[in-house]
């Protein structure tokens, strides 16, 4: 079987298209590269959606934590504490079994017992807590002078937030937020190891990598392939976030622009 046929058979296997049976013996490198790559689709799906939705929720959480009202402040603080203080792995397990028990009383909750939605909810809440804390820190370091200048120009309420506070907050938070986004993508590999079932062996990249490692009893091929994919993904994220970073800092003189640097990790 040529490599192109393998690609046609297994390229979308993680989504349930193509060949039903996974290869069992005489596993070629090509099969491993194709299937692990196919699994990456799930990592990208989880990562992209939770970054987008989590970003909006994180802004709300940061504003809540900085709010005058004690209720919102406490609520945001507890939310952040709950999701940052416990392992993501346990959160996945708990959420899965929570949805399972909800299923008996609310049939609608059965949607969330599958990975594509249930794990996504957990990831969104988790990244919202981590990024919320980052955004809150940035919100607190918005220069006082910027706000005073905005007041002097007559900016008020929403337009002050939209045009002055928010862009500055994003600009300050962006390097840390880039880091968070990268590790969120890495965290997506936990999904199929934490209760959420991989229906008909449709799993993510790590799921297939460990499948191959178990089958061939040789970890030295599938895991480096997985590592290669993730390094590539990390580089793409850095590039995309770098473009946004340049846009956020375009008004600053060349030398003052912060450069994005991959910092030591923030595993969860």
């Amino acid at each position: 079987m040529s490599c192109w046929e393998t690609l046609a058979d297994y390229g979308l296997r993680s989504l349930g298209y193509g060949e039903r049976l996974l290869p069992r013996d005489e596993l070629t490198i090509c099969q491993q590269v194709v299937l692990i790559g196919s699994g990456m689709l799930w990592n990208i799906y989880f990562g992209v959606l939770s970054v987008i939705v989590g970003f909006m929720l994180a802004t709300a959480v940061a504003l809540g934590k900085a709010s005058q009202s004690a209720l919102w402040r406490k609520l945001s603080e507890w939310f952040i504490f709950l999701f940052r203080g416990s392992p993501l792995f346990i959160q996945f397990f708990f959420a899965y079994f929570l949805f399972l028990s909800l299923k008996s009383s609310f049939p609608a909750a059965s949607v969330f017992t599958s990975a594509w939605s249930g794990a996504l909810v957990v990831l969104i809440l988790n990244t919202a807590a981590y990024s919320g804390e980052i955004f809150y820190g940035a919100l607190m370091s918005v220069p006082k002078g910027d706000i005073e200048a905005a007041d002097a120009y007559g900016f008020k309420g929403w337009s002050k937030f939209r045009k002055i506070t928010w862009p500055t907050m994003l600009r300050l938070a962006w390097p840390a937020y880039t880091n968070e986004a990268i590790f969120l993508f890495h965290a997506t590999t936990l999904v199929f190891f934490s209760g959420f079932p991989a229906r008909q062996q449709q799993g993510d990249a790590l799921y297939y990598a460990s499948y191959f490692a178990d089958k061939t009893f040789n970890p030295f091929i599938p895991y480096p392939i997985l590592a290669g994919y993730f390094i590539l993904l990390t580089l793409i994220i850095i590039t995309l976030f770098g473009i946004v970073n340049r846009r956020l800092n375009r008004h600053l003189p060349q030398n003052d622009r912060p450069r994005l640097k991959l910092k030591p990790r923030l595993l969860r």
Binding site: H186, A187, T189, L190, F193, L206, A209, S210, A213, P219, Y223, L226, A227, F230, I231, T234, L262, R265, L267
Partner: peptide, 10 residues
């Protein structure tokens, strides 16, 4: 950097 830690564990 760059690779999920859980992959290293496995």
């Amino acid at each position: 950097r760059g690779v999920p830690d859980i992959a290293f564990f496995l």
